[in-house]
């Protein structure tokens, strides 16, 4: 498995492809402290107004902040809004 992953990674680098498309990894986009969008997620683990935890192939992504709302939730994307104070890979 790790060899296969390495192969894919090398292929992606060789072909100049976005790695998240080839190897199954999360893509996190943050707009200031207003919005965070996570692609390739594995599901919502916890949701409160101060903390949101999202499962990903690389582990749990923890978003902390205040007044957090989930703007959008689908099988491959989650968008969180509010006042974001921290993002952590656990």
């Amino acid at each position: 498995m790790p060899r296969k992953l390495n192969l894919k990674k090398q292929f992606a680098q060789l072909m100049d492809l976005p790695p998240e498309a080839v190897i199954n990894s999360a893509l996190i986009k943050i707009v200031g402290n207003l919005e965070i969008s996570i692609s390739n997620h594995r599901g919502l683990v916890e949701y409160t107004t101060t903390a949101i935890r999202v499962a990903s192939p690389q582990g749990v992504i923890a978003v902390s902040g205040a007044g957090l709302v989930i703007h959008y939730l689908s099988s491959d994307e989650i968008k969180v809004g509010g006042r974001i104070t921290g993002v952590e890979l656990q």
Partner: peptide, 26 residues
């Protein structure tokens, strides 16, 4: 509730404008 939302998303049911009201209400 989180699990139910995940299952819905996996089933191709997107949700939006999700807000937490209390510990058990979304």
């Amino acid at each position: 509730v989180e699990r139910a939302l995940n299952a819905a998303a996996q089933d191709g049911i997107p949700c939006w404008g999700i807000e937490r009201l209390t510990t058990d209400i979304v």
